[in-house]
């Protein structure tokens, strides 16, 4: 009881994590299938980049190494999102429609915390490895060397990028408290729009750039933070905005979530 709450939640998270692994080990072939699935949806864009750069030296002034670095950064944040937050997408169908949300409310833990920790997507390990591989290859190609501090900043930015995407998904799936969404389809277009973030946003029209920066800030999940390591001075301000955006999106997400939760508590469905 004396133990601070944060340690308590940390411990519970790790316990769930451990139990989830134990449970999954019973279905080893499923993990393999999840990996193949994650890889098959994500590898095509890598193949695309590799093939195109056989023919041209740059895209819109961005070299092969730079494009790969941005791609790798995006891929890492996508993989981390899928691994740790993708259970959010189940809210509409599995939790609300199938009635599992009541069970969540009956446990003495915050409901959002419970839903996030109830399932991990281990299959995304394959795409994480792919992203890290692309990033390391790009770094080598660009003769990049990072100091310890820069590494720390890198991890901070990857974390912010992951949280931005997770926050956007949270806002979207919280809408299922109002809109019935039996297929969980509400989050699909978002999964596709993040394809836009795998490439430098300078290739899009100005209107689309504004959209990807300030309305659906996906550019902050890859392009802007990645530029810090590419030595591009033009976007420094955006780099430092990345953690701020992450906080704002999560603040908004939690607000919408709480409103939705209140609605659920008064309607029961």
């Amino acid at each position: 009881m004396v133990m601070p709450r944060i340690f308590f939640y940390g411990k519970i998270y790790l316990r769930y994590f451990g139990q989830y692994f134990k449970g999954r080990l019973a279905y080893r072939s499923d993990i393999l299938i999840q990996m193949v699935f994650a890889l098959s949806t994500q590898i095509t864009s890598l193949v695309f980049i590799v093939i195109i750069f056989n023919h041209i030296p740059d895209i819109n002034g961005w070299s092969y190494g730079e494009i790969l670095f941005i791609y790798g950064f995006a891929q890492i944040s996508i993989a981390l999102f899928s691994m740790f937050f993708s259970n959010l997408i189940q809210l509409g169908r599995f939790y609300i429609l199938d009635g599992n949300f009541d069970r969540v409310l009956l446990r003495p833990l915050p409901p959002l915390f419970q839903i996030i920790i109830e399932r991990l997507d281990i299959g995304s390990f394959s795409t994480l490895a792919m992203g890290v591989g692309a990033l390391l290859y790009a770094a080598a190609k660009l003769d990049m060397s990072l100091s310890a501090v820069e590494c720390l900043i890198f991890f901070g930015l990857v974390l912010s990028a992951t949280l931005i995407f997770a926050g956007l998904v949270l806002i979207l799936v919280s809408l299922t408290f109002w809109i019935k969404d039996p297929t969980g389809a509400l989050a699909w277009p978002l999964m596709t729009v993040r394809e836009f973030a795998k490439y430098p946003i300078t290739i899009y029209t100005p209107a689309l750039q504004v959209f990807l920066s300030w309305i659906l800030p996906l550019a902050f999940t890859s392009f802007y933070p990645a530029t810090l390591f590419l030595g591009r001075e033009d976007y420094v301000l955006y780099v430092y905005l990345t953690p701020v955006i992450a906080l704002l999106i999560w603040g908004l997400g939690i607000l919408v979530w709480n409103l939705g939760l209140r609605r659920y508590e008064s309607s029961g469905s």
């Binding site: 695309f48 195109i52 394809e195 290739i203 899009y204």
Partner: peptide
């Protein structure tokens, strides 16, 4: 939803090719 999703993919690919084949560049 599916329609939007597919349209979005076409749009990304379009902008990519627009950047790749800018200034009258051709590949094969």
């Amino acid at each position: 939803l599916v329609l939007t999703e597919y349209l979005l993919i076409i749009i990304v690919n379009y902008f990519l090719w627009k950047a790749i084949l800018a200034d009258g560049r051709t590949i094969r």
